[in-house]
Simulated scan of single mutants.
Amino acid sequence: MIDRREISFVRRSAQDPCDQDGLAALLAAYHLQTQAEKGAAVADADRLPERYRAEVLDPDSAFADDVVLVALNGDAAVGCVVVTAPADGQCEVKRLWTVPELRGKGIASGLVTAALSHAAEIGVERVRLSVWQWRTDAIALYERLGFTATESWDGRSRLVCMERAV
């Protein structure tokens, strides 16, 4: 049994490739699940749309201007979140993922809390995110952490946009 105290939350460094495979696996799982939920399932990461496949194949390049936070259980990557580079006093949280077998252990909330701490450290005023409306557990988590629904900045239907002050 995993206890949240056994999980560490770290800022991923491109200079330390030890978790490259773990992060790639987390991103692949995130994108494969999302494609399936959108009704466009693909068999493997090689069949993902190009923009998502690029994140899986080379996270360092895909998120070169962003900060990637990883939850580790020992040396194993068990969760991730990306905090985009600040623009106009805000940043965005995206790609929040926790391995399914460890959900409910506080890993996702720990990652979002770490993302909010990072945003505060760099002087960001607001953090925003978007989440598919069918991801009700994620929406509930974001609401517990102070995010509220806001007018959409994204034209895709069934996408809920949320934000909160830092």
Rank of each mutant, 00 (worst) to 15 (best):
L141A: 08
W97Y: 15
R128K: 15
E121T: 11
V131C: 12
W97N: 10
D88P: 01
G106D: 10
L102R: 09
R126W: 14
V93S: 07
L111P: 06
V93C: 11
A115K: 00
L129Q: 03
A87F: 13
S109D: 14
C91E: 04
G106A: 09
C91M: 05
V99Y: 06
L96T: 09
D137M: 01
A108Q: 05
T98W: 04
I122W: 05
W132H: 14
G123N: 03
A114G: 03
T113M: 03
A138N: 01
S130D: 15
T98N: 09
D88L: 12
P100C: 01
V99Q: 14
I107F: 08
D88C: 08
V124H: 06
P86I: 07
S130R: 13
T113H: 09
V131R: 07
H118V: 00
V99R: 14
R126Q: 15
E121G: 11
V93A: 11
R103T: 08
S109I: 04
A85F: 12
R95W: 02
W97K: 07
A85V: 09
T98H: 07
V127P: 00
R135D: 03
S109T: 13
T84A: 05
T136Q: 14
W134Y: 13
D88K: 11
L141P: 08
E121I: 01
T113Y: 03
R135M: 15
L141W: 05
L129G: 04
K105G: 07
Q133W: 08
A108N: 04
G110C: 00
E121L: 10
C91T: 10
A119D: 04
G106C: 08
W97T: 02
V93F: 15
A108T: 01
L102F: 08
A138S: 05
E125R: 12
A108K: 03
